[in-house]
């Protein structure tokens, strides 16, 4: 890499540096006046977690703001963390929805989770109807902040489920917290 850079003419590097400098100037200037400006901070903004003290039944539900068309529905989903998931689970109010692929699901998933990969969930009415309306459908993926979990959660909301949440920490967070998993990689693999 160093030898590669040595072959680059100084004028080229100078131009590249100028581009970065101008981009930096423009970036910070525009960010200053941007309506959704980026807050420069070393601390990640906290997610809209529900407070631990709130009883599970009173957790805020999912709100839908219908726009001009059905397709433009804005879905605000509830994110929960490990502590909240355990709290909900203790009251037997949770059905865990694992959005990983079937292969990944078989390798490892949270105890008692059902596998719902994102594809064609809404089209499978029988599968959708098999889920309880009175329980919290808590979707999660492998990694924290799984977009697939958000997609599936959105599908549940669209299908009319009122108690839908996303377990933000995902399988990785669950394992990191030291809790057991099921599956081929887990301790409780059901043979």
């Amino acid at each position: 890499m160093t030898s590669l850079l040595k072959n680059v003419p100084p004028k080229t590097i100078k131009e590249a540096i100028w581009i970065i400098l101008v981009a930096t100037l423009l970036g910070f200037l525009v960010n200053l006046f941007h309506p959704n400006k980026i807050q420069i901070s070393g601390k990640r903004p906290s997610l809209p977690f529900a407070a631990d003290t709130v009883p599970a039944q009173d957790l805020p539900g999912v709100m839908i703001t219908a726009n001009s068309s059905e397709q433009e529905k804005m879905v605000r989903l509830l994110f929960i963390n490990t502590a909240e998931l355990i709290q909900l689970n203790a009251n037997n109010q949770v059905l865990l929805i694992d959005v990983q692929s079937q292969i990944e699901f078989l390798k490892a998933h949270l105890p008692g989770a059902k596998n719902f990969p994102p594809s064609k969930l809404l089209a499978d009415k029988a599968k959708l109807d098999s889920l309880p309306q009175e329980k919290w459908l808590v979707c999660y993926g492998n990694e924290p902040g799984s977009k697939q979990a958000e997609l599936v959660a959105g599908d549940f909301v669209t299908a009319g489920y009122k108690f839908v949440a996303i377990y933000y920490d995902g399988l990785v967070g669950w394992k990191k917290a030291g809790y057991e998993i099921e599956g081929k990689k887990g301790e409780n693999y059901a043979k």
Binding site: I19, A23, G27, F28, Q39, I40, S41, G42
Partner: peptide
């Protein structure tokens, strides 16, 4: 780290546009 993430998110789009 998150601080670098925010700074890159501010600069990178403009590098792309300028290029």
């Amino acid at each position: 780290p998150y601080l670098l993430v925010t700074i890159i998110a501010i600069i990178l789009p403009w590098v792309e546009i300028l290029c």
